[in-house]
């Protein structure tokens, strides 16, 4: 099989963590097929740490640099990625299934006229072919799929593939860029959500459900988030909470919310409805606190406490703070 291209996202002049995950997965898949992996970054300038991608398995770090690529533009990015895939003769192209990747990957696949496996959580090689494992029916089943297209395209769920350093340094190379003309969508405004970490990017999520009783009790969850560290932890919510208007929709986890896969997911007073599990069941470790010992959430939790969140949460914040203080 030919080489694999990992499309690596950069933001604020830095490579995003998910980019190293995608590249590591590409390098591992390439290795099992006797091929190599390259990384591609798009932007006005290269991220300061772009060259370091060589340590994560990139044979070549390709840079598509152009003033017109400074901000994400779906049509432009899609054209440039498709051109690099074609010019490089790649056999596969991987994206991160982030907000940007989910927008970009289908367009690239359409331009290349190849199918796309979205939100992949595992990759195998069988008979020299890549097999993508992906959750379907909101995680109630997993499909093993193969692409019959000339390029095997996939987007990979963030936080599932571990970034892995490898021997080798990789070279850096600029690639020619031709921007498409035609209608381009224009971002006319951006409202930052208060600078807190997005639930889809957090490695620890503290989620609250209807059993929290009301928005006035959210300080209990915030205290746990802050104890863990608001640079890595974020708040999440069940739909019941969002529908009640206690929390913004951006925090909803589940079938009609975000799909997350953090290192640690804490479900506080969440019953564990199937639609909620859809959004978090591939988390590495799940903790549940619920006063009902029969709540379905205990069926997927690695660790549970049967109890009242009003009592458990303050203690949890305190113990985590103490733990961090000890180092």
């Amino acid at each position: 099989m030919s080489n694999i291209l990992a499309v690596v996202e950069q933001r604020d002049g830095q490579v995003r963590g998910v980019g190293r995950e995608v590249l590591s997965a590409a390098a591992a898949a390439a290795e099992s097929l006797g091929a190599a992996a390259d990384a591609l970054l798009l932007g006005e300038r290269a991220a300061a740490d772009a060259a370091a991608l060589g340590h994560y398995g990139a044979g070549t770090v390709k840079l598509a640099l152009h003033p017109g690529l400074g901000a994400y533009s779906p049509e432009r990015y899609a054209r440039v990625v498709a051109d690099v895939v074609t010019a490089g003769g790649y056999g596969a192209v991987f994206f991160g299934a982030t907000a940007q990747g989910k927008d970009l990957a289908p367009r690239v696949a359409a331009l290349l006229d190849v199918p796309l496996a979205s939100d992949v959580t595992g990759i195998d090689a069988e008979d020299g072919q890549l097999v993508f494992i992906r959750p379907v029916y909101a995680g109630k089943a997993f499909a093993r799929v193969v692409s019959e297209g000339a390029v095997a395209a996939a987007s990979l769920r963030p936080n599932v593939f571990a970034p892995a350093e490898r021997a080798g340094a990789g070279s850096v190379e600029e690639v020619p860029v031709t921007l498409p003309d035609g209608p381009t969508s224009r971002v006319v405004d951006f409202e930052a959500a208060g600078g807190t970490l997005d639930v889809s990017e957090a490695s620890v999520i503290v989620s609250g459900g209807r059993g929290m009783k009301g928005p006035e009790n959210w300080h209990l969850l915030e205290a746990v988030r802050d104890a863990v560290g608001s640079d890595v932890a974020a708040l999440g919510a069940s739909r019941a909470v969002v529908d009640a208007g206690w929390r913004p929709h951006g925090e909803q986890v589940g079938q009609t919310g975000k799909t997350v896969s953090p290192k640690l997911y804490m479900a506080m007073a969440i019953s564990g409805a199937i639609q909620h599990l859809a959004g978090m069941r591939t988390s590495q470790t799940i903790v549940a606190v619920n006063k009902d010992p029969d709540a379905p959430i205990f069926g997927v939790a690695d660790y549970g406490i049967v109890g009242d969140v009003q009592e458990v949460l303050p203690r949890l914040a305190e113990e985590i703070r103490a733990l961090k203080a000890r180092g």
């Binding site: 190849v114 199918p115 796309l116 496996a117 097999v131 959750p135 379907v136 995680g139 109630k140 089943a141 997993f142 499909a143 093993r144 799929v145 193969v146 692409s147 019959e148 297209g149 069941r281 799940i286 010992p293 205990f298 069926g299 997927v300 939790a301 690695d302 660790y303 549970g304 406490i305 049967v306």
Partner: peptide, 18 residues
């Protein structure tokens, strides 16, 4: 051109504990 080779139940999470 995207062929499902196998559809299977989700991987079981190892039994948790209270």
């Amino acid at each position: 051109r995207l062929t499902v080779r196998v559809l299977e139940p989700p991987p079981q999470r190892p039994a948790g504990r209270v």
